[in-house]
Simulated scan of single mutants.
Amino acid sequence: MSVLFGSIMLYSVANFLTGYVTSVDQYALARFIAGIGLAGELGAGITLVSELLPKNKRGVGTSLVAGIGLFGAVFAYFTYKFTNDWRLCYKIGGVLGVGLLLLRISVAESGMYQEVKDLNVKRGNLLMFFNNGTRFRKYIMAVLIGLPTWYVIGILVNLSNRFATELYGANNVDSGRAVMFAYVGIAVGDILIGFVSQYFQSRKKALYLFYALTIISGILFFSAFNSNDGRMYAICAALGFSTGFWAIFVTMGAEQFGTNLRATAATTIPNIVRGGLFLMNLLFKDLFQDSWGWPLLRSGVTTGIIVMAITLIAAFFTQETYGKELNYVEK
């Protein structure tokens, strides 16, 4: 709970202060602080929900947490369109964060974690992921299964206007609007995948289904079917939906480890995946386009093939965690 409290506090204060910045440096500092706050909030929340709910309801609970939270990006788009004042948008975000903070104070601490606090075991030691071969392998696999999310958002959707130019010429695609459609899809997918996981009684089968949808949506993105702005937005929404496995991916990361490392895994794994966008961009732009002189479409397709291949291999070697008992510690 202390991680959640601190994360939301940092994010709320930084958001509110961003509405009053007077220089680029101040803006960068405020966004940096907000990023630190946001980085810990989702993982800690997923961990808390996982430990509080019965094991046969964990997937649905964590999906609702992540899916509803992702609708925030959609509301942010419409808030800006309605106010047309970016400073006011940040102030609104800060006030909403304070409201969330007040709600989180009433949430009970996990009983599992309370028990671990009374034991003589190391808690939150990041080095424990690297000093044991089995734990290290599980940790790396948990990171790699989430890569397609940021390939889709960070490359395909973010550069949708440029891809549209290459695919069908003159266009009026707004990347911000494309991101909004993608996040609608992600939020819906994140909520639905929890129920899909419950139906299959398997985290991995649900992931494989959404990976297949990601591949199909990616093929449509680069095909002749993507021939106008309306279809581009629709495909961005489909790509978002198909990569709406963020909740299950983070939940699987939490379920892989004992109570003394669970929150550390759930907070670091998604942030390493976010950082993976930097490496994907190095591959996509710096190597394929700048060094090798490949065109945009070829670079995008090749990067996607590499990312999906790595992810599918990692998913195959990832442990199934549906219904796993979480009341244990790592030694």
Rank of each mutant, 00 (worst) to 15 (best):
L101T: 14
R104G: 06
L100I: 15
K117L: 10
A108H: 14
F32I: 07
L100Y: 15
W86P: 04
E115C: 09
A30R: 03
G72Y: 02
M128R: 15
I46C: 04
L29F: 00
F136W: 11
I153Q: 10
L126S: 14
L102H: 06
S110L: 00
T149H: 12
N132S: 06
G99C: 10
I140N: 02
L144D: 03
T18Q: 02
L101Q: 13
D85G: 03
G111Q: 15
G124P: 04
G154F: 00
M141D: 10
Y27A: 14
V49H: 04
N125F: 14
E41L: 13
K138H: 14
V49E: 03
T22R: 14
F129S: 02
A73P: 05
G67L: 08
L52C: 11
V107E: 04
A76R: 09
L96C: 12
K91L: 06
F16K: 12
A44G: 01
P54L: 04
Y20T: 12
A66M: 09
L17V: 08
G93R: 07
F130T: 04
G124N: 05
A44S: 02
W150I: 14
F71V: 06
Y20N: 11
I46T: 05
F130R: 03
L29I: 08
L10A: 09
S106A: 15
Q26W: 12
S50Q: 01
K81G: 07
G45C: 07
G40Y: 07
S12V: 02
L42Y: 11
A44H: 01
G72W: 00
G93M: 05
G94T: 07
S23F: 01
V152I: 08
K117W: 06
G154T: 01
R31I: 12
N120D: 06
F16A: 10
G154D: 00
K138L: 12
I145N: 03
V121I: 05
V95I: 13
G40F: 11
G37P: 01
M141K: 13
R137L: 09
I140H: 02
K122A: 10
L126F: 15
I68Q: 09
D118W: 14
L29H: 01
V143W: 14
F82E: 09
G124K: 07
Y80S: 04
R135L: 01
Y27C: 14
K117H: 06
A66L: 11
N84M: 13
V49I: 07
I145L: 04
Y11R: 13
K81C: 03
K57S: 02
G61Y: 00
T134E: 13
L100Q: 14
V24D: 08
T62E: 06
G67M: 09
T47F: 05
M128H: 11
V121C: 01
M141C: 15
I105Y: 03
A108T: 15
T79P: 07
A108I: 13
D85I: 02
